[in-house]
Amino acid sequence: MSYWRAAGLNYVTYSNIAAKIVRRVLKPELQANAIKRDETHVKFTPWIKGKPSKPGQ
């Protein structure tokens, strides 16, 4: 078992953290573009029994 899995991460989260670090250490001219790929806007609403429930409830 890898150390990151032992820490409770899955592969996707782990590789996203790695990608974030790589973006941060890029040369400035490359970083400007790469940093744009570092944002996300998606929002989630779980549905229970056919009704949306507020996130966090």
Partner: peptide, 10 residues
Amino acid sequence: SKNIAVVANE
């Protein structure tokens, strides 16, 4: 609507 589990928007 009963089948919907999660909705992602934006």
